[in-house]
Design a protein around this nucleic acid. Structure first.
Length: 259
DNA sequence: ATGGCAATGTTTCATTGA
């Protein structure tokens, strides 16, 4: 089973690429971020024709998340946002797919450490820690996939010295990421030996992709019960190439059958 | 020292992203 996460930076703009990519890679489950679409404008019928059932939690202009699952998979217990939270931004959607709980995240960017947006990011992260704890307690088979807007360590940054202490790389953010792993989750990417300088996001400016000036901020975390079935975890950097790419490339894992 | 790209809607700029 193949599970993927992709920040598409506008599903409206990226739909042709998404459809071509679904056909090429044949993922079973896909977590999308930055759909930037109200639910009424979500292209559910087009995706259905491509063989995917979808659930979405969107809003105009910003944010927006969705989960796609191949038609034959059972999708149950869809939940939008974090329970008992009043966050007006659409950043979390979860569903149980064939008995596996799938949580799709779009973690706030945070802008700069001295900004109000950073306060919001940290508050959001603290609230989500409890949510993950509760979700894991109820769902031993858990996947948490999305745009985390955190580069977990220096290996995930093209120029660690330039980025040290900056947004996406600060000690505070990295501590949050580690605290999530400490709940009983594993960074699937680090279960395997990986090529040096593998990233998931590259700035559109300054030839960021050509120079491989990137960060690894998109992640697929697996609960211990699922991690032992993971046989690969890659970033599909080819998807950053060509006409009208998203600035993020999809992350993708393969789970061996039998979990 | 600065901005450099892309997407969105209140559009022909301002705002956001990372």
């Amino acid at each position: 089973m193949k599970i993927s996460s992709w920040n598409v930076n506008s599903l409206n703009v990226r739909l042709p690429r998404l459809l071509a990519w679904l056909n090429k890679r044949q993922p079973d489950i896909v977590c999308l971020q930055e759909t930037k679409l109200e639910n009424a404008r979500f292209p559910a019928e087009i995706l259905k024709k491509a063989g995917y059932t979808s659930c979405c939690y969107g809003q105009k202009t910003y944010n927006g998340v969705a989960i796609l699952a191949r038609d034959e998979l059972a999708v149950e217990n869809i939940s939008c946002g974090v329970p008992d939270d009043c966050d007006s931004q659409a950043r979390v959607i979860a569903a149980t797919v064939n008995g596996v709980r799938v949580v799709c995240f779009y973690v706030p960017n945070g802008q700069a450490l001295d900004s109000e947006k950073f306060e919001y990011k940290m508050h959001w992260c603290r609230r989500v820690t409890r949510y993950l704890q509760e979700t894991l307690a109820e769902n031993p088979k858990l996947i948490v996939a999305g745009d985390f807007n955190i580069a977990p360590d220096d290996r995930d940054v093209y120029d660690p010295e330039a980025w040290r202490g900056q947004i996406l790389c600060s000690d505070e953010e990295r501590a949050v990421f580690r605290s999530w792993l400490a709940l009983g989750l594993q960074d699937s990417f680090r279960l395997f030996e990986q090529p040096a300088a593998t990233f998931s996001w590259w700035d559109y400016r300054q030839l960021g992709f050509v120079k491989n000036h990137g960060l690894r901020i998109d992640h697929i975390l697996l609960s211990d019960a699922l991690a032992s079935f993971c046989v690969s975890s890659i970033i599909d950097r080819d998807e950053r190439k060509g006409e009208k790419p998203s600035d993020h490339a999809p992350a993708m894992i393969t789970l061996h059958e039998g979990f």
